[in-house]
Computed example of a mutant assay.
Amino acid sequence: MPIDAAKALAAEPTVTELAWSHKDVLLYHLGLGAGTPATDPAELRYTLESRLHVLPSFVTVAGGGMAVVDGISAPGVDVDLAAVLHGGQTIEVHRPLPPSGTALQRSRVVAVHDKGKAAVLVLRGETSDAEGPLWTCDTELFVRGEGGFGGERGGSPRLEPPGREPDWTLERPVREDQALLYRLSGDWNPLHADPQFARLAGFDRPILHGLCTYGMTLKALTDTVLDGDVRRVRSYRTRFAGVVFPGETLRVRAWRLDGNRLQALVTAAEREDAPVLADTVVEHA
């Protein structure tokens, strides 16, 4: 059986050494569209090493790793990458991220859900450096055709938008070359660069990385709602609900909730607000 849930859940964590420098952070920020206007002091915090702070979503690319690859290579898991979709992403940061550093990441499968025609794997990465815990990252992988093994179905929580007008509506353009730049942070999937490969996957042109949309949304909310202070972000989760094409515009609708939380809904403005990110929540200080 391609997925042995018991074996996957019982396996020892995989330990990986991560290392990054200020150049990796700068490249990641530029891949999200930072630096416009180039001399804006608010943007220089993302693009100039002497003022650099680190957007917490950087943890999804720190060290150049790809959690999707880690998940499908876990003990008890033997599936085709082409059948895997990135279903959701959650990060929790335990303290501000340093612009450069080394750390150890311990990754393991913490849940395997049987959705009938598909399986859902939840891969957790816990990362620490010499000073203690840095971040925890949960990656949800949807594997088509691998369900039906008799496992727990798991929940399917959906977070409806509040029944009122958003407190903020933000629009962020996606450059035509943005996927080409973002992929330099470690996700080399040709789906985001090669038109022929994209057509084989069912798209008429390459699509933007979901984690790029994820990072762009966090930056927009941090800059607008949290006074640009990345240190205030405590956790950030989303469900990937649709694709974005380079050249489109992200429309971010956000609501302030009780308990220092923000809820957001992200759509593609040019395609009649087609859903992109849903069930999105930022918890902050």
Rank of each mutant, 00 (worst) to 15 (best):
D114L: 03
L200K: 13
G247C: 04
A19R: 15
A6V: 02
A220F: 05
Q178D: 12
G87A: 10
S21G: 14
V112C: 11
R124K: 11
T213F: 02
V25S: 10
D279F: 02
G154N: 09
T47Q: 08
P75A: 09
D70W: 06
G116S: 07
L218Q: 15
T213I: 01
Y236F: 14
N189A: 02
A103F: 08
E165W: 01
T90P: 01
T213S: 15
Y28E: 12
D227K: 09
T249L: 08
E140R: 15
E272Q: 12
L123G: 08
R232H: 06
S73H: 13
L97I: 07
E270Q: 14
T139F: 05
L226M: 11
T47I: 02
C212Q: 10
H192W: 02
G33K: 04
R158S: 14
K23F: 14
S185N: 14
G132F: 12
H53P: 00
P37C: 05
R256T: 04
L48K: 05
D78H: 15
E49Y: 04
V252R: 03
T136A: 11
Y182V: 00
H94L: 08
E160W: 01
W255E: 09
V120C: 11
V122P: 07
R45L: 10
T238V: 14
R164K: 12
L226E: 07
G242Y: 03
G71L: 02
A264D: 10
T14I: 03
F58I: 02
E12Y: 02
A10D: 15
T213C: 08
T139W: 06
D177L: 06
A103P: 07
A67F: 04
T60W: 03
R172N: 08
A285K: 13
I3F: 11
T127E: 06
D194Q: 04
E12A: 15
L226S: 09
A111P: 00
A254M: 05
P275Q: 07
I91E: 12
L32D: 14
L208A: 14
V112L: 06
G116T: 03
E146I: 01
